[in-house]
Amino acid sequence: MRINSEVIWLVISFILTLMVFSYLLGDNAFFRFASGLLIGVAAGYFTVVIIYQVLITRLVVPLMQGSTLTLVPLFLSGLLLLKLSPRLSQLGSPAMALLVGVGAAVAVGGTVLGTLFGQVKGALSFFDPIAGASGSMALRIVEGIIFLVGTLATLAYFHFGARERRKGEGRRRLATISVVLGKVFIAITLGAVFAGVLTAAITALIERSDFIITTIMSMVR
């Protein structure tokens, strides 16, 4: 009888799923074996992908094609590999510096042009008469004010308004109000996020359960 490879993989997946589900009964060797297997396979797969997708495609092939500029990343990659040695790890600092500098620039540029400009524009779009031409302008303005206040209160809670001010009752009250409002919006937002996490986890449970039942039923048939 020729055993289909797909069946073998199916059986392997089924057994591994049950091994992990056994954690519901308590920590055991099966669960730990499955965890170790996961780490090893993931590490091995990652190494293979890096070798093929980075080392070969980005270093070896361009060098073979005569690209002299590739010598720079090759040299820097060699320096970075020295990070594995405690004594020579300092030599990998220039490569890390390049990585960190470029990463910081990418983050700064994207943040400024992507999030800051875009989100501020989005917060003010409620007050745009042209964009709100289709609906009720008053309602949009009310919505806009609510969302703007919520955004500012959340921002204020995280960065500016959490500390008490000493001078003047007025500023203190304003900070207190913004803190309270910010807390309300954050609590609602985090509640929505947690509900989303629960939803995703339940979906994963449904998917795994579906897989187990489907596998069992296919084996029974």
């Binding site: 400024v112 999030t115 501020v120 959340t154 995280f158 910010g182 609602i188």
Partner: peptide, 22 residues
């Protein structure tokens, strides 16, 4: 829509933080 306001504030806060770090 209420979480949108809070999420926007959170995103702006994250953006400002990463901007400062960068």
């Amino acid at each position: 829509q209420i979480p949108v306001a809070g999420a926007r504030g959170i995103l702006l806060g994250i953006a400002l933080g990463s901007l400062a770090t960068g």
